[in-house]
Amino acid sequence: SLTLTVRGEEAVRRWYKWAQAHNLEVEVETHGDEYVLHIK
């Protein structure tokens, strides 16, 4: 499992696509303009 902090929706989309390509689940938490992604 992997936890990432990114800024901006574009980065979130990029990681989301990456995770889907690897059959992984993604949980997204929003903290202001930062997003915490939990990839499992």
Rank of each mutant, 00 (worst) to 15 (best):
S1D: 14
S1Q: 13
S1G: 14
S1A: 12
S1K: 13
S1P: 12
S1T: 15
S1V: 15
S1L: 13
S1H: 14
S1R: 10
L2V: 09
L2D: 04
L2W: 15
L2K: 05
L2E: 04
L2Q: 06
L2G: 05
L2N: 04
L2F: 15
L2A: 05
L2I: 13
L2Y: 12
L2T: 07
T3S: 10
T3H: 11
T3R: 10
T3A: 06
T3L: 07
T3G: 04
T3N: 07
T3I: 13
L4Y: 04
L4Q: 03
L4W: 04
L4E: 02
L4T: 05
L4K: 04
L4A: 05
L4M: 09
L4I: 15
T5N: 07
T5A: 08
T5K: 12
T5E: 05
T5P: 03
T5S: 07
T5Q: 08
V6R: 01
V6Q: 01
V6G: 02
V6M: 04
V6W: 01
V6L: 06
V6S: 02
V6H: 02
V6E: 02
V6T: 02
V6F: 05
V6P: 01
V6K: 01
R7I: 13
R7W: 12
R7C: 10
R7H: 13
R7V: 13
R7P: 03
R7D: 06
G8K: 04
G8Y: 04
G8A: 05
G8C: 02
G8I: 03
G8T: 14
G8R: 03
G8M: 03
G8Q: 04
G8V: 03
E9R: 09
E9L: 14
E9Y: 13
E9H: 09
E9T: 09
E9F: 12
E9P: 09
E9V: 12
E9S: 08
E10T: 08
E10S: 08
E10D: 12
E10L: 08
E10V: 07
E10C: 03
E10H: 08
A11Y: 05
A11H: 06
A11G: 05
A11C: 02
A11P: 03
A11D: 09
A11L: 09
A11I: 06
A11T: 08
A11V: 07
V12A: 12
V12T: 03
V12Y: 13
V12L: 15
V12I: 08
V12M: 15
V12G: 03
V12P: 00
V12Q: 03
V12F: 15
R13L: 12
R13N: 13
R13E: 14
R13H: 11
R13Y: 10
R13W: 10
R13V: 09
R13A: 13
R13I: 12
R13D: 13
R14H: 11
R14K: 14
R14W: 15
R14I: 12
R14C: 08
R14S: 10
R14N: 10
W15Q: 01
W15T: 02
W15R: 01
W15N: 00
W15D: 00
W15Y: 06
W15F: 08
W15K: 01
W15M: 05
W15I: 14
W15H: 02
W15V: 12
W15G: 01
Y16I: 15
Y16L: 15
Y16R: 13
Y16G: 04
Y16S: 09
Y16C: 07
Y16V: 15
Y16A: 09
Y16M: 15
Y16D: 04
Y16E: 15
Y16Q: 15
K17A: 15
K17H: 11
K17N: 11
K17L: 14
K17W: 09
K17T: 11
W18V: 02
W18K: 01
W18Q: 01
W18R: 01
W18S: 01
W18I: 03
W18L: 03
W18F: 06
W18N: 01
W18D: 00
W18G: 00
W18M: 02
A19F: 07
A19L: 08
A19Q: 01
A19H: 01
A19K: 00
A19S: 03
A19E: 00
A19M: 03
Q20G: 05
Q20M: 13
Q20L: 13
Q20P: 00
Q20E: 12
Q20D: 08
Q20W: 10
Q20R: 09
A21V: 09
A21P: 01
A21S: 11
A21M: 13
A21K: 10
A21R: 09
A21D: 14
A21Q: 12
A21H: 10
H22G: 02
H22I: 04
H22T: 03
H22Q: 09
H22E: 04
H22V: 04
H22Y: 08
H22W: 07
H22F: 07
H22R: 08
H22P: 00
H22D: 02
H22S: 04
H22N: 12
N23K: 08
N23V: 03
N23M: 09
N23G: 15
N23D: 09
N23T: 04
N23R: 08
L24I: 07
L24P: 00
L24M: 13
L24E: 01
L24G: 02
L24R: 06
L24S: 03
L24H: 04
L24N: 02
L24K: 05
E25R: 11
E25K: 11
E25V: 14
E25T: 14
E25M: 12
E25I: 15
E25Y: 14
E25G: 06
E25H: 14
E25L: 13
V26D: 00
V26R: 00
V26Q: 01
V26C: 03
V26A: 03
V26P: 02
V26T: 03
V26K: 00
V26Y: 07
V26W: 07
V26G: 01
E27Y: 13
E27L: 13
E27T: 14
E27C: 05
E27W: 14
E27R: 12
E27M: 12
E27Q: 11
V28A: 04
V28P: 01
V28M: 10
V28C: 04
V28H: 05
V28T: 06
V28W: 07
V28N: 02
V28F: 07
V28Y: 06
V28I: 14
E29V: 12
E29Q: 09
E29G: 04
E29D: 07
T30Y: 11
T30Q: 15
T30G: 09
T30R: 15
T30N: 13
T30W: 09
T30I: 15
H31E: 06
H31M: 11
H31G: 04
H31S: 09
H31W: 10
H31D: 10
G32W: 03
G32K: 05
G32R: 05
G32T: 04
G32S: 05
G32V: 04
G32N: 07
G32H: 05
G32E: 07
G32I: 04
G32F: 05
D33I: 06
D33L: 07
D33F: 06
D33G: 08
D33Y: 06
D33T: 07
D33M: 07
D33E: 11
D33K: 06
D33P: 06
E34M: 15
E34V: 15
E34Y: 15
E34G: 07
Y35R: 03
Y35F: 12
Y35T: 05
Y35Q: 03
Y35D: 01
Y35M: 05
Y35I: 08
Y35N: 02
Y35K: 03
Y35A: 03
V36P: 00
V36H: 06
V36G: 01
V36R: 08
V36L: 09
V36Q: 05
V36E: 04
V36Y: 07
V36M: 06
L37N: 00
L37W: 01
L37R: 00
L37S: 00
L37E: 00
L37P: 00
L37T: 00
L37F: 04
H38L: 07
H38N: 06
H38C: 03
H38D: 02
H38Q: 06
H38Y: 10
H38K: 10
H38E: 03
H38I: 12
I39Y: 02
I39A: 01
I39N: 00
I39M: 07
I39L: 08
I39E: 00
K40I: 11
K40N: 08
K40W: 15
K40L: 09
K40F: 14
K40S: 13
K40V: 09
K40H: 15
K40T: 13
K40P: 04
K40M: 10
